[in-house]
Amino acid sequence: MANLFRAQWYRLFCRPSTAILLLVMAALAGLVAVQFTASWTDCHTFRAVLGRASVVEVCGPFVGLFLAAFFADDFQQGTVRSLMVGKGSRRAWGSAALVLAVLVAAGALLMEAVVTGVVYGAMGGAPVAFDGRELALWWLTATLLITAFTMLATLAAILVPVNPPAAAIIAATLLTSGLGFWFCQSAALSLPSPVGAFVEQEVLPLSLTQIRLNLLNGLPIEVWWLADGALVTAAATVAIMVVMARRELR
Rank of each mutant, 00 (worst) to 15 (best):
A126F: 10
P127M: 07
A187H: 00
G86R: 02
A122D: 03
L155F: 13
A171Q: 08
L109G: 15
A126N: 06
T143N: 10
M123W: 11
Y120T: 03
G124L: 05
K87I: 13
T173W: 00
A171R: 05
G132T: 12
G196F: 05
G124E: 02
S177H: 06
A167W: 09
P165S: 11
M111L: 15
A171C: 09
G132V: 14
T173C: 01
A197L: 04
S186N: 07
G196W: 02
W138T: 06
V162E: 15
A142C: 11
M84E: 10
P127E: 03
A129N: 04
T154Y: 13
G107K: 09
A106W: 13
I170D: 11
G132L: 14
W182D: 03
L174V: 08
A136G: 11
A92C: 08
C184S: 10
T116F: 11
I169V: 14
R90G: 01
A168S: 07
L110N: 07
G86L: 01
A142R: 01
G180F: 05
A148V: 09
G125L: 07
F181H: 12
A92E: 15
L145A: 02
L159W: 04
S89P: 02
P164V: 12
D131H: 14
L140N: 07
S190N: 08
W138D: 06
L145Y: 08
G88R: 06
P165K: 13
G107I: 12
M123N: 07
V115Q: 03
S95L: 15
T116P: 13
V128G: 08
G125Q: 05
A108S: 15
P165Y: 05
M84W: 09
R91C: 01
K87R: 15
F198G: 04
V114D: 07
A142W: 00
Q185Y: 00
T154W: 08
L137K: 06
L100C: 10
G107C: 06
A156L: 00
S95E: 12
W93V: 11
N163E: 13
I146R: 03
A188L: 00
N163H: 14
D131T: 04
G117H: 13
